[in-house]
Write a protein that binds this DNA or RNA. Structure first.
Lengths: 342, 342
DNA sequence: TTGAAAGCGGTACCAA
DNA sequence: TTGGTACCGCTTTCAA
């Protein structure tokens, strides 16, 4: 299978017996072309297996049809889902995604941005940057390339940002538990240095206050995302505060561990019936990255950020910015979704 | 922040007081350039904030520095990890990844391949295709673009393929359990239509035979990737075959469910001591996609395919194919890694 | 060691 | 409705 000579519009023009400009017009659907010529050109394209070279077309001034994406950690389900949503939406429009990975540091990001710019992307999305962004914004603006941020918390102040509503998510979850009759609700997991967590805890706390329910700082427990640690932590928490009737878990791992911990505690105290296995006296709520999680067999109320839809929204947003320069940069907030386990 | 005039090598040449060809030479490090001129050019580049337009450079004949990746499902941890590894390795070389998503059907793949080709990629990787690939291979070969497949099982016969060694993985896991003294080992999970599963079951079965251990087809149980179903299935399995002392689980969800099932069974039979919680009489082994799983607190022997390293290897392989056309296409097999839980 | 100029594959303006 | 042609930004002979 030898490498065939590259097929260009010249070849197509020759085969169709027209000029290159005509071929170009047919390809882009512009100009008024007689259907006869159009037909002949398309036949030639088909026959020769011609694929249009977008680099050349972009070079001349058109759009490249490519969006650059710099994502902090593809391995995290949240970003994986977001990326999937973004590429899906973009592909549906015949556009593509340039994927760059990692880079928390400002200069690394800048370098990656340059890579994208040098490839002639139409727009850039940075998912999961935490640091400030002035330099980045300037560089992109200088090149006339729109830049949009997507993150999990409200780090950036001036940039065009899409982010989940962490407070509202925590409120929804807390309210759900309250409506289920819980009055003494604790918090388990996360690191107090996390902004996402801070926003969530804020929502939790505000909701308690709103309903006139007690808030104790000892009921907000930090914990690594390890099942074992979570199991131990919830055990200790309940031992010291036996009146707690519901616990909000910071993420899946914490929730799993908490559930184990409850089971163990139940057994040890000998208070639980035979089928307490799927039925606890302490209710759990939890934040989860992805809805279709393998853990959704658990009797837990999950609240999730629709990461895939964030991807769709991002696609819309960046396309708007690309197509109309008058779109104002601003913050857009994505609401969370409650999933009540069986 | 107005859009500054685009800066080209012409501007750089002007600023440095040399010709464009000289600038080009300096940029690509070719030609013999006096260090004085080189310095002046680099200064100008720095000052103007020039970024080289790779589309133009690729158009003229150079490489684009871009690898196309079509991945079946980014949302699967395995492919996410693989993608992360690939981009990481490629970025380290100053190259980039075009990400395309989905497309199991042959014509969808073909269409996506065309998108990549039209962007002038240097090579294409398809991760997770199951169908045959003749058309794809031809199309790529016709364009002179190397094509490499990465998959989880040996679907493709003639193509250049990288894949995990499912048989060996199953062998390792089975042998591990045997060395731990288990003689009656069952299999739980997966769908019999899955080729990956077939390869794994093959390895499991072969190892049993090799050690002269009993194999019963009733001990190989199909099961959806649901915790609840897995818990029920393992319960039924052990009820009917109480002599089974170890179970190999097809994936994480199955393993989790199996573990629950064991716990429940233990409680119901009342045979287990108080701390049987982390200590079962039936041992579990499991396949897992990603090593650093939240589940690794469980006392389970995991076997994982090093997906990230598969990404690195893929990067190497495609680069070889790009740089030297004499590299033979062939199958390359990635060994698995055993992780013995605490 | 450096410069001039001819493309790479398209697009789009201006004529015909 | 079509064709001719000057570019887009860069690389690469070939001369100077």
């Amino acid at each position: 299978m030898a490498v065939a000579k590259k097929i260009t519009i010249n070849d197509v023009a020759l085969a169709a017996g027209v000029s290159v400009s005509t071929v170009s017009l047919v390809l882009s659907g512009k100009g008024r072309i007689s259907s006869a010529t159009g037909q002949r050109v398309n036949d030639a394209v088909e026959q020769l297996g011609f694929v249009r070279n977008r680099q050349a077309s972009a070079l001349r001034g058109g759009q490249s049809g490519v969006i650059g994406l710099i994502v902090r950690d593809l391995t995290s389900p949240f970003y994986a889902e977001l990326t999937a949503g973004l590429t899906e939406a973009l592909e549906a429009q015949g556009r593509m995604v340039f994927l760059l990975h990692g880079g928390r540091e400002a200069d690394q990001l800048l370098q990656r941005l340059d890579m994208l710019l040098s490839q002639g992307v139409d727009g850039v999305i940075i998912a999961g940057a935490s640091g400030l962004s002035n330099e980045l914004c300037e560089r992109a603006a200088q090149k006339g390339v729109p830049l949009v941020f997507a993150s999990r918390a409200s780090y950036l102040d001036e940039a065009d940002t899409l982010r989940p509503d962490n407070m509202q998510a925590a409120q929804m979850l807390t309210e759900h538990l309250i409506r289920r009759g819980h009055q003494r609700i604790a918090w388990l997991g996360g690191n107090s240095a996390s902004l996402t967590r801070a926003e969530r805890v804020g929502g939790y706390c505000a909701t308690l206050l709103k309903y006139g329910l007690p808030f104790h700082s000892e009921w907000v427990v930090e914990c690594d995302a390890s099942q074992k640690k979570a199991a131990e932590a919830i055990g200790a928490l309940l031992r010291h505060n036996p009146t707690i009737s519901a616990v909000i878990c910071y993420n899946e791992a914490i929730a799993m561990g908490a559930w184990f911990g409850l089971m163990r505690a139940g057994r040890q105290s000998g208070e639980v019936g035979v089928d307490a296995f799927f039925d606890h006296q302490v209710a759990l709520g939890a934040f989860a990255d992805v809805p279709e999680n393998a853990l959704d067999d658990l009797p837990i109320a999950w609240i999730t950020t629709p990461a895939r839809e964030m991807g769709y929204t991002l696609a819309d947003r960046i396309m708007q910015r690309i197509e109309r320069s008058d779109v104002a940069a601003g913050h857009q907030i994505v609401p969370a979704r409650l999933v009540v386990g069986r």
